[in-house]
Design a protein around this nucleic acid. Sequence first.
DNA 1: TCAATTTTCTAACTAGTGTTAGGTTTTTTA
DNA 2: TAAAAAACCTAACACTAGTTAGAAAATTGA
Lengths: 216, 216
Amino acid sequence: MKLAKSAKSQKRVLDAAAKMFRDYGYAGTTMRAIADEADLKAGSIYYHYKSKDELITAVLDIGINAVISSVEDALHALPETATGRERIETAVRAHLSAIIKIGDYTLATRRVFGQVPEAIRLKNTKLRDTYGAIWQKILTDAHARGEFKTNANLTLARLFILGALNWTVEWYKPGGRTIDDVARDFTAVVIDGIANPCGVIHSAADDNQQAQARAN
Amino acid sequence: MKLAKSAKSQKRVLDAAAKMFRDYGYAGTTMRAIADEADLKAGSIYYHYKSKDELITAVLDIGINAVISSVEDALHALPETATGRERIETAVRAHLSAIIKIGDYTLATRRVFGQVPEAIRLKNTKLRDTYGAIWQKILTDAHARGEFKTNANLTLARLFILGALNWTVEWYKPGGRTIDDVARDFTAVVIDGIANPCGVIHSAADDNQQAQARAN
DNA sequence: TCAATTTTCTAACTAGTGTTAGGTTTTTTA
DNA sequence: TAAAAAACCTAACACTAGTTAGAAAATTGA
């Protein structure tokens, strides 16, 4: 292995950068702070990355690509016959799993995206569109199969789903609710809503266990 | 009027600060850039605000307070008998209206919040909790009246709603869909879901007008 | 109008920024 | 083990940051 050590340091630098960008934003993160976090001197970073911009680009790309490929893989593993509900729940679960695994990168992506030089942002926007298209396809396919209301506003539904998903990274902490639980309940809201179905009125007897966490 | 001119300049500085923080983040925004935007010199800002931190604090507070009071006012204007659905739709509409009106502040709030010095963030977090509590009350009240499924996960529903709402600021642009439309469809998704109700299968004949906008 | 007050500007200070060139140390190769 | 390559460090560069003191300009009140 010729690049063994180099690769290791490079990853350390990248991880440190993601963490710092996440906490302090693009301009708020200094090369010296990244270096400290990665147990290096600032000058040494330039052996691995040509510039700060190249670093943030790498972090942004990893952040979205991890989510995209996680979701795509999970969807491809489903049988052709999978319903829209199954696909949505699967995609939500994959999205959350990816976020947990590389939380620093996705959070950095979300927080820093709006502040990065325009050229960098444009490159990254394509990836974001790709991800949006994946969701749009899930929805339109299921809609075409008659699984959804004829008059459902799918574009708006997608924006809501992605918005809510993007936001999970702000409140979801491992150790609380499991990913499976969140994915199931999340899907239930989107698919079925929270209202009593078909006018059936249930009694509201047992409803006192929801007053706990209020992360936001 | 003794403070007429001072008040005007102060507002110009504040507006400029919101816009700059929105685009370049906390550390990425310089006092000189704010001054330029406000037609002032950097040093003059300090006549109105003691420091950069005091500026960002003001912007953050305005951003959330505007949303909170807009939503609270709209809710109080509703009759006692209003259903959960009506309350949700009303709150969504008020939230969106506030965002449109002071978009720079809310966007700045959302983008900058994670990068601001901890002391400032803590003060602002209380306001955020207040807003979360408003939504939680809407949901639990309606739930207690039997309007929602007994087993609905209200906490998750709230996180979903707030996440999606927080995200609207990224894609909603005046001139496209009206606020009323968005609020109605948004509520429909949350309340009823997008699935065909009660197993009724509609034909998916007319479903080809959704392939337009894909903002995310 | 003219003195008092408010508002703004100028010019500078210190501290910290991304980046680089060239030297040192560590690791690999033969 | 000695030479070559890779990885890292040091010290500095030009520049920009937030902030301040004091002078200048604009506004106000009598």
